[in-house]
Design a protein around this nucleic acid. Structure first.
Lengths: 136, 136
DNA sequence: ATCCATGCAAAGCCTTTGCACCCGA
DNA sequence: TCGGGTGCAAAGGCTTTGCATGGAT
């Protein structure tokens, strides 16, 4: 993830991707973002979407959510908060829980590690999937 | 992940995979497990390794760690505990921290969700990577 | 003018799957 | 014997990358 670039340019594509991602709270996948953006820029390529999502998350503008298989999801809200992931449909929801403070300090046995942060994620069945599981 | 099988058989392959995984605390990837097992069973296939890891984690014998990109890692210790992941090399380490109790109960606003559990993971530079980052 | 970014398509990486044969219970 | 399991190889899903062209500063 080391970039040798000296600066970043704000292109129309990057701008629109960021705008669209900020509009929603659904934590879309790259492919879903591609679909959203294409409504405004039909000729954008999926590669461009991937490249920009990578750069934007490097810049701290957005956040990449990696748990849950190969399919990454993206969060337009880069401030620290926790998530709930549906193990059935894979969707990710925001959760309003106080950030756990001082957790890093408890890691006294983690000597030599440089702690950068933590992530807390709940596994669950979302309301939709809980419903359809019952019906089956 | 719904299995229609009525029972599972303990084959030599499944047995060896489980044994090897239990031997280490390095949370190896499927490919690394493949390499370990192949020393004892040179003719085993990677597909078999994947299928068995899936089944063993369904059975609750092992645990699948999904955070951190496409590459899944596996934990021979299925009891609940937390991890530290090195953002540089991707390796996963165990952490000895009291399980957070009653966290699920705080999710009063998660109405309609069926909470199954939670995972807490610290992002860090491992001692090795912290060292080589300094040197550069 | 410079050099980062784009579009397109190909390649990559990890994982899953189809199929014929094998083997554990 | 019976139905799950295996090896092999091909296919799959998501992501990354090479290349020539385009565009922001």
């Amino acid at each position: 993830l080391q970039t040798t670039k000296t600066q970043f340019r704000m292109t129309r594509q990057r701008e629109v991707i960021l705008e669209e991602l900020r509009k929603v709270c659904t934590h879309p996948s790259a492919d879903e973002i591609y679909a959203m953006v294409r409504q405004r820029m039909p000729r954008i390529s999926l590669g461009t979407v991937y490249r920009n999502l990578e750069i934007l998350s490097e810049l701290g503008e957005i956040r990449k959510l990696e748990s849950g298989g190969c399919l990454k999801r993206f969060d337009g809200n880069a401030t620290s908060h926790y998530h709930i992931r549906c193990v059935e449909c894979g969707r990710v929801f925001d959760i309003h829980l106080q950030p756990l403070e001082g957790l890093e300090k408890q890691l006294d046995q983690a000597q030599g590690f440089v702690i950068l942060g933590h992530s807390l994620e709940f596994q669950a069945l979302c309301p939709d999937c809980a419903q359809s599981t019952k019906l089956n």
